[in-house]
Each structure stands twice: as C-alpha cells, then as structure tokens.
Amino acid sequence: MPLTPPRPGRGATQNTLSSRFDDRGRVIDNDWRDDCEIVDDGAPPLRTTVTVEHPKTILTRNTSPDIAFDRSVNAYRGCEHGCIYCFARPTHAFHNLSPGLDFESKLFAKPNAAALLKTELCKRGYVCKPLAMGTNTDPYQPIERDWRITRSLLELLADCRHPVTITTKSDRVTRDIDLLAAMAADRLAAVMISVTSLDPATARSLEPRAPAPHRRLAAIRKLSAAGIPVWISISPVIPAITDHETEAIVAAGAEAGAIGAFTLPVRLPNEVAPLFRDWLAAYHPDRAARVMSHITEMRGGRDNDPDFHTRFRGQGPYAALMRQRFEKAIARHGLTNARMNLDSTLFRPPTDQLTLF
C-alpha cells in the first residue's frame, strides 16, 4: 500500500526527505550531469506557490557525451505538471525542498532570464550553437500563462537569430507560433512534444497537470501546419504501464504531422525511485512488482543506471525489444530519429536597440 493516498491533481503522493545538498549529508550523484483535467478523489487540495528567483547566470553548460545539446536555459525551477517519473525532481533537494509534492507545488520563476541571457549572448567570444529549452522543467507549464518568461526568451532569440529547440508537454507552445514559425523558416527553431500515453486516465495519473494527450497531438498539428518542424517524444516508456502504446503513439504523431520521433525508457534517479514505487502502489498495485522487475532488469539490477549512453538506452532483452518495436514503428510511418539540424550561422549578437529591452 502507498504511504499516503494520492492528492487531487498531483503526481507525487508525499514529500520525501532529502539532505543530498545539505552540508550535513552531500553525496556524489553521477546522474546530475546532465490546462489539464483534475479529479477530486477526496484528499485536500494543495495550492501552488511561486517564488521569484534572481540567479546571477541563466545559461547552463553541458558536457555529457550522450546529450545532443551543450547549453540550455530553464525559466522555472520545479514543474506543476507533476509527472511522477520526472528525472528533474531531485533538483528541489538543492533548496532543501522535497522532490515530492514540493517539486510540483513550490515553484520558482526567473523573470530576469531574458536579460541574463542577453548578457551571455553579448559576451566577447560567444560561439553560437542551438540552445535547448525544456531540458529540466517544462518551459510551458501552467504558470507560463501569466509569467511569460519563455515568451521573453524566444523574443530575444528571434531578434538575434539564435537557434533554439523546445521540449514540452503543453499545447501552450502554440501561443508562440508567431515567433517560432518565423524562426523555423530560417531553420532556427524546432519543437519536441512529449506524449507518453494516449489514454486519458493513464496520462492523468502519470502527469496530472499536463494537457491531455489529444491536446498535445493537436499542438503537433498546429505547429506542423505553421511550418515548424515537430518531433514526438515517447518518453519515458514505462514497462507494463505504457509500453504497449508505442506503435499507436508513433502512428498518431505521424498523422498529426510530426517528422521525427524519439523514445527513452523510464529513469528513476535518487529520490524519484521511492516516489515512483509509492505511485505504483497507489495506482497499479496489481502490477507494481512486475513493473519494477522490468525496470531493474533494464538498469543492470538497480532502480537507475546513471552511466553515460546506457542510461538512455537500457540493458537486456526487454529494453532491446522496446527499441526494436519503436524503430519498426517509425520506419513504417516514415519518421526519423535523427537529431534536429538547425542553423547557427545566422546569429548576430543582441544590441541595446532590441525592442524587448
């Protein structure tokens, strides 16, 4: 049985304790390199709060050999979508907050993100390469509706013709089609929409405050119609929960206009593992043991594999079977799993004359 009953509209069932970033108990973690329908099931609602954060820098550099981008920007810390499997949950421990309910209800916004990014782009010797957004928390989570920080970042990038890739679960990205379409015409923008399940009930329990699957597919259709290249991300795939939907999701993405697709098996780093186990006990007690057995098989006998390359592929026959099914599905529908190819040669450093500032 789960330690606590599920809360309406939330992914985690509880707050877990973590002291990994407390001076009293830091540990080395190799995995660190790197409008929805809400059902009231009787638990008291948990209000979302947003704290303004004033970081000194906004550009995050990445040197991991198995990640396609080397720089990213995150407008928010924490994510209200509440995806139970989110590998970014442990980042909240850095603030002595729980990767559980705190991660999806105690959010941080960075309203000066565009100004900080402008400073970075103006630095002497800056070399332009595609900037990734949505690599840690979703740039179009619900609070973006009012804060519009992602919008301000895109306005800057559009003005200085800097390439950008966006990963999101939200159809709110279509609000910025005016910017993205103009950038895409010059190979400066591409979008990846994540769809983990086509079943509304499954999606609602996995990702309680993310838009429903049909809205994400509609977003792919709108973006594609506007000339914006779109990939569909079937990530993460959860054995015995969502893996049977791989072919159907690929087909739905292709029909909606996606030109490519990616997939990753579920990862459970650090505090995510006990949260996920408790979620399984709450929503799938009949198959919890089977799900975790498949996961540990794919992760070399552990809940999580933090090693480069294998962490994104999984090990063993079950992981190999999932890859084979995916590859056959994208071949059948004419999709690619090649990396997004954007143009970095058009960049011009921002100036004080930009309309954004």
Rank of each mutant, 00 (worst) to 15 (best):
M1P: 14
P2S: 01
L3A: 12
P6F: 02
G9A: 04
R10F: 01
N15M: 02
S18P: 00
R20E: 00
R26S: 13
V27K: 12
N30L: 14
D31M: 03
G42Q: 08
P45H: 11
P45V: 11
L46F: 10
T48N: 05
T51V: 12
H54K: 13
T57G: 10
T60W: 10
T63V: 14
T63N: 15
R71M: 15
R71V: 10
A75I: 06
A75W: 00
R77Q: 11
R77S: 10
C79G: 08
E80Q: 13
G82S: 06
I84W: 02
P90F: 12
H95A: 14
P99T: 06
G100M: 04
D102R: 07
E104K: 05
E104H: 02
E104W: 03
F108P: 06
A109E: 12
L117Y: 05
L121R: 01
T135R: 00
P139M: 03
P139C: 06
P139G: 10
R148N: 07
T150Q: 09
L154R: 04
L154N: 07
A158Y: 04
D159S: 14
R161I: 02
R161G: 03
R172Y: 12
D176A: 02
L179S: 05
R187L: 13
V191N: 06
S194I: 14
S194T: 15
P208Y: 09
A212Q: 15
A212Y: 00
L217F: 12
K222W: 00
S224R: 00
A225M: 10
G227V: 03
P229C: 02
I232D: 02
S233P: 00
I238A: 02
I241L: 11
A251E: 15
A254S: 14
A254H: 11
E255A: 15
A256F: 10
A256I: 12
G257D: 08
A258D: 11
I259W: 04
F262G: 15
V266H: 05
P269S: 11
P274C: 07
W279S: 05
A289R: 12
A289P: 01
S293D: 15
S293T: 13
S293W: 03
D303F: 13
P306V: 07
R311T: 08
R313T: 14
Q315L: 15
A320D: 15
R323N: 11
R323F: 07
A329Y: 03
I330Y: 06
A331W: 06
G334D: 04
D343G: 04
P350Y: 01
D352T: 12
L354F: 09
L356N: 10
L356S: 11
F357C: 09
